[in-house]
């Protein structure tokens, strides 16, 4: 289900199955992959509130997959920009990243996703224990960077980035709002559950 957009974009890029990426395929590839990465990030962040609201703890299993899809699309987003938009001109890419803060913000988000993807296995989770939860709170920072990157590159029409900013703010705000209760609960003897 989550792979469908990637398959569609790949078909468009290769010109197979009658799929077209429109008049400007480079722009389509970069933008669609970027949008998908952002959507997957938002979905990842939505799992904890959803679990708390519904009590379905099996939702947690979905979270790893969503997070990895976010990373997958972020990599496609970055690499389609590097390969198709910039033509792999490393000198130009470097000077662009240094000169344009929004590129630096986006690149930081992708780089921060790397350790999370690498430690996404159950083995890593067991090995890092409480540290794993702390490490994976980087997702909050990544989501903020991703929205910021989107916001900053829009020419004038900010409606879409604003929508994502509001959603991310609500999802992060939920955690802040829930926190005092969790802290209170922790002082009570019976609870041990960590949330990320």
């Amino acid at each position: 289900m989550f792979i469908t957009p990637a398959l569609w974009l790949a078909a468009g890029a290769l010109g197979v199955a009658g799929v077209s990426l429109g008049v400007d395929p480079v722009r389509s590839l970069v933008h669609e992959n970027g949008t998908m990465a952002l959507r997957m990030l938002v979905a990842t962040l939505a799992i904890t509130p959803l679990r708390q609201l519904t009590g379905h703890s099996d939702l947690l299993r979905l979270r790893r997959m969503l997070g990895l899809f976010a990373f997958f699309y972020a990599l496609l987003h970055l690499s389609s920009w590097v390969v198709f938009d910039q033509g792999m001109d490393l000198q130009m890419i470097l000077s662009e990243v240094v000169k344009r803060p929004y590129l630096l913000v986006g690149l930081s988000a992708v780089l921060l996703m790397l350790p999370l993807a690498l430690t996404s296995t159950t083995a890593a989770q067991r090995w890092l224990k409480r540290r794993w939860t702390q490490l994976h709170r980087l997702t909050y920072v990544i989501a903020v960077l991703a929205v910021w990157h989107f916001w900053w590159q829009v020419k004038k029409d900010l409606r879409e980035p604003i929508a994502y900013a509001v959603i991310v703010a609500v999802l992060l705000g939920w955690r802040v709002w829930k926190r005092p209760r969790a802290a209170k609960a922790r002082s009570a003897p019976a609870t041990t559950q960590g949330t990320a």
Binding site: A13, V23, D24, P25, V26, L29, F84, D85, M92, S95, E96, K99, R100, Y102, W152, Q153
Partner: peptide, 14 residues
Amino acid sequence: RWSQATERRIGGSL
């Protein structure tokens, strides 16, 4: 927010 040194000609290959 972006360089004006180069441009992408619409209609070119990927």
